[in-house]
Computed example of a mutant assay.
Amino acid sequence: MPFIEESDLLDLHKDLDKSQIINERLLDQIKVKNKELKKSKIQRNVLAVFTTMILIGGLAIFSFTAGLSQSSNAMVDNQHVLMSIDSVDAYRARLETLRKKNDELSLVKEFYLAKKFIENETIYSVQVKSLVDKNLSLTSEGLTNTLLVKNNPFYAYSVGNFETLQEAQTFRRELVKIGFPDAFVASYKDGKRLKIESPN
Rank of each mutant, 00 (worst) to 15 (best):
N120L: 06
S84A: 12
K116P: 01
S125W: 03
L107A: 05
T144L: 13
E119K: 12
S130G: 10
V126S: 00
R92S: 07
S130A: 03
L148T: 15
T97R: 10
P153E: 01
E110T: 00
L138M: 15
S84F: 08
K109F: 08
T97P: 00
D77V: 15
L138G: 10
I85G: 01
T122C: 00
H80V: 13
A74R: 12
E96L: 06
L98K: 03
A60W: 02
T51E: 07
R99Y: 13
S63L: 12
S106W: 04
L148D: 12
S106P: 00
I85R: 01
E121I: 02
L148R: 12
N73P: 06
V88I: 07
T144A: 14
N102C: 06
L138Y: 15
Y124I: 02
Q70D: 07
A114G: 01
L136R: 15
I118D: 10
K150S: 06
L105H: 01
T52D: 10
T51D: 10
L98P: 00
L105S: 00
L113G: 02
S137D: 12
V128R: 03
T52Q: 12
S63F: 08
E119A: 12
K150D: 04
L131P: 11
A74T: 08
E104Y: 06
L82E: 09
A60H: 00
G142D: 15
T51S: 13
